[in-house]
Simulated assay, not measured.
Amino acid sequence: LLSVLRSMNTCTYFCRDLRENYCRNPDGDSRPWCFTTDPSVPWEYCSLKRYCINGNGKDYRGTVAKTGNGRTCQEWSSQSPHSHKYFTPLTHPRAGLDKNYCRNPDGDVNGLWCFTTDPEKIWEYCEVPRCSTSPPVPAPGRQCLSGRGEDYRGKISVTESGNTCQHWSAQSPHRHARTPENYPCK
């Protein structure tokens, strides 16, 4: 099968599409990444965040940190003022429980929520804009992030800290073996 895929000029579902300097996940890491053009930063994870919600918002990764009533959200890793040992970055590592951002780690049908910094109010729902389009159907060449991003084919080429991605076929400023030639179907 590999020899057949290598002989094809078109990319199939199994190809990782190491074109240009777009963020990709060629080796099954936790999410898409790239080599950077910053000589002091060899590689970094890419910034592929959702800033609007579809459905219950379980895949939302934006930075809203206030509830619908204007309360500030408590950091997910903090146990003060409200103790909550079940919803932490350690217990839900794939739920995006970063800082104090609104999330939906339990799939609540009513949407995003957070613990609040108000000692009188344990948690509240957040208000985040709804996406104007429906979520994409699973298919090769997804333009948004799903799972670990192994099938992500969008054109984002900036890392989480703002570095520009190095072209996969380039060897400067960082030398590497993850080239389109070495990974024709990766």
Rank of each mutant, 00 (worst) to 15 (best):
P39M: 04
C73A: 01
L145H: 05
D27G: 03
E75T: 11
A139D: 12
C185V: 08
R130K: 14
S172C: 10
N100R: 09
P138T: 09
Q74F: 05
N25D: 00
I122H: 11
R61T: 15
I122L: 11
D151Y: 06
T91M: 15
T72H: 12
S3D: 15
S172D: 13
T164Y: 07
Y51C: 12
R71K: 14
F35Y: 14
T116K: 03
E181D: 07
S169P: 03
N69D: 14
R178T: 08
T63H: 11
D106S: 13
V158L: 10
Y101M: 09
G62A: 07
V4W: 12
V4L: 15
P119N: 05
G62T: 04
D29G: 07
N182M: 06
T91V: 12
G62D: 08
S169K: 13
R148S: 11
L112V: 09
L145V: 06
G162F: 04
T179P: 00
H176W: 01
S157T: 02
R24K: 09
P184S: 08
S78G: 03
F14Y: 11
R50W: 14
D98T: 12
R142V: 10
L2Q: 15
Y101R: 10
Y60G: 07
S3F: 14
C102E: 08
Y45K: 03
P140Y: 11
C52Q: 12
Q79N: 08
N100P: 05
N163Q: 13
P140N: 10
R130Q: 13
S7C: 13
N182Y: 05
C165D: 03
P140D: 11
C131D: 03
G154K: 01
E44R: 03
C34R: 05
L112E: 09
T88Y: 06
C144D: 15
Y13I: 11
N9I: 09
P81H: 05
C185S: 10
Q74A: 04
C185I: 08
E20D: 14
N104S: 04
P138C: 13
R130G: 06
R16P: 02
N163S: 09
G149H: 01
C34K: 06
R24Y: 04
T36K: 00
D108H: 09
V137W: 14
P32H: 00
G55Y: 01
G68Q: 14
F35E: 00
V41S: 00
R24F: 04
A65Y: 13
G62M: 04
F115E: 02
E20M: 10
